[in-house]
Amino acid sequence: MRTDWRKIEENIFKGLMIASTLLILLTLVLILGSVVIKGLPSLNLAMITQTPKGGFYLGKEGGILNAIVGSLLIAGGATVLAVLISLPVVLYINVYARIGSRLAMLTRFALDVLWGVPSIVYGAFGFIILLSLGLRASLLGGIIAVTLLIIPIMSRAMDEVIRMIPKELLAASYALGTTRLETACKVVVRQSLPGILTAVLIAFGRGIGDAASVIFTAGFSDSVPTSLFRPAATLPLAIFFQMGTPIPEVQERAYASALILTFLILLISISTRIIMKKFTKNVIR
């Protein structure tokens, strides 16, 4: 009889486990589903081709082109800057630093810590930087804050793939008489290119979706930014402001904007998977 009880307990817990896994997956479906159902009816071409006209936030004509362009510019600019900082750092701790080096360990630890810093703190810090430079909320400010936010995300993802490169490959390259820089650029980067691209895309996606870091630093504007020193609208903030109005038409536009943002994020997420699978041309296995 004792064995029976053990089996019953196991089955109860197994049932609970399956139920909670299903619940989590179901939530994902529910979130995506409600974004699509709410967003589709109010989605139209004007949304993505026009900037807000007068009285847009009272339900008049216009679209959110300003926010789409602003978000792409900020996330794009930040991604470029973040690559310029992340890639050298990751190459340094994997190629230049000795195995088991203190500095490499410390850097990884610092990246983990930075990864946990909330985006609102990056926003506040970005704001301090802007103040000290004498700048106002602008496209540049948004780029700076988002760069800081995505550096740890990008670096950690890059480190994960570059770390996995077999040490023999590096040894083979050195044996041919290359310097460490040449090995880093021509062997390590090429070998881990799919992983690096994935890391870049993940960071870009995070940059597009984040609102808390740009709320102080990028400001908001109804026109497409024409210079680095002009305030720029972003998609998440556009959704936030539209949700905040009491007017139903404007709220519906918020749902449509959310659908556009979700679509962008899904597109990026799917591209990373395709890259991971297909772009393994130069990779030696």
Partner: peptide, 17 residues
């Protein structure tokens, strides 16, 4: 991967939901 996707959804979307 689906759970990863959950991690990629921006917080503004969670807020709206």
């Amino acid at each position: 991967p689906l759970i990863d996707l959950l991690a990629g959804i921006p917080s503004i979307i969670y807020g709206m939901w």
